[in-house]
């Protein structure tokens, strides 16, 4: 018997098709979101395809199925805004403007990596685009992001902070400690929770009480809070834009729960539903609500994108991906002396 515990509950693009909602956007703006999501998808698929070669000696956590969350949220941020996140870094790094060559080099453990091979897939840094930090400890980066927001407030910076977290991070005390302080001080920060129902293989039903919605818990702490369809890039973008505006105007911290499904296993390549912790039918169910494809269908129906343009975009990305992989593979490995640098700062 097929068991689909977690069902898609969004409205899709219907509200945007019937009304005039999307008419206020420029065509290029809408196509850019498609391109950004497709780029993440194709990069992740190429990483996955070559992971078995065992040259990327780094634990990967693929974001396939959740691309709209990364692109829609980062689309509402300015280049100088800072983002902090957990172990699932690729989507956020790329959506925030991260350098693909530096990312691939980091996965291939080369000196040209964005962290010089100190970080790996779970720790992609690029201060020039506001990718300020990530932690492999669930909720670890959340207080740090909150501290960055404290600095922004104290010295009157124009930038704000977005802290990305998963559904399990709200089971950590550090999350509530941080948001309590953020509300207390009305800090300029957006907490963006990607609820994909699983922490590694543990479903949310064994971790959190039924019907206790995450965004409502956050709301009860005093955060301006909303829940969105995390497969719908426009819905994610619009909520993020509103919340970012709220935080930037000094009103205090905000929270978004973005619901999407993790198509792949927690870590590594491929879907692992055959191992029994979830039904393959559940994955198939969510694949009907593919954030990339559903958005393409929407754009096509609005006559904003056609198959030919899609192919051209796809070819362009594939060439970029190929170039980035070649760059990484041909980059130098660190030498022993590199190990001993930057343990302490001068």
């Amino acid at each position: 018997m097929k068991l689909i515990k977690y069902k898609y509950s969004g409205k899709g693009f219907a509200p945007y098709l019937s009304g005039l909602k999307s008419n206020s956007y420029e065509k290029e703006f809408l196509i850019r979101f498609y391109r950004d999501m497709l780029r993440i998808r194709l990069i992740e698929e190429e990483i996955e395809r070559r992971y078995h070669e065992d040259e990327m000696k780094s634990p990967i956590h693929l974001v396939i199925g959740q691309e709209a969350s990364s692109v829609g949220s980062c689309g509402a941020l300015r280049p100088e805004d800072q983002v902090y996140c957990g172990h699932r870094t690729h989507g956020i790094y790329l959506a925030k403007g991260g350098n693909l060559k530096a990312m691939m080099s980091e996965l291939y453990c080369r000196t040209t990596g964005c962290a010089g091979s100190r970080g790996g897939s779970m720790h992609l840094f690029d201060k020039s685009v506001g990718m300020a930090g990530s932690s492999a400890i669930v909720a670890g980066a959340i207080p740090i992001a909150t501290g960055a927001a404290l600095k922004a407030q104290l010295t009157g910076e124009s930038w704000i902070v977005a802290a990305f977290l998963g559904d399990a991070a709200v089971e950590e005390g550090a999350f509530w400690e941080a948001v309590n302080f953020a509300v207390l001080k009305r800090l300029p920060i957006l907490y963006f929770c990607e609820n994909n129902f699983f922490s590694v293989c543990s479903p949310i039903e064994v971790r959190q009480p039924e019907n206790a919605e995450i965004y409502k818990k956050a709301e009860s702490f005093g955060l301006k809070s909303v829940k969105v369809d995390g497969t719908n890039v426009l819905e994610v973008y619009e909520a993020s834009r509103n919340m970012v505006e709220y935080a930037r105007s000094g009103k205090g911290p905000a929270f978004i729960e973005s619901v999407a499904y993790r198509w792949r296993g927690h870590g590594g390549a491929g879907d692992d539903s055959h191992t029994g912790y979830r039904d393959p039918a559940e994955v198939e169910h969510w694949q009907q609500f593919d954030p990339v494809k559903s958005y393409y269908d929407f754009l096509e129906q609005k006559n904003l994108l056609d198959g030919e343009t899609r192919l051209a975009i796809s070819k362009e990305i594939e060439a970029e991906v190929q170039e980035a992989f070649d760059f990484a593979i041909n980059s130098p490995n660190p030498i022993e002396d590199d190990l001993y640098t930057h343990v302490y700062s001068d």
């Binding site: 909150t146 005390g173 400690e177 941080a178 309590n180």
Partner: peptide
């Protein structure tokens, strides 16, 4: 909130405080 405040201090320090 010892863990929270230690992280908040860390984030503040990373940004120049």
């Amino acid at each position: 909130s010892e863990e929270g405040m230690m992280g908040i201090s860390t984030g503040a320090a990373m940004n120049g405080l």
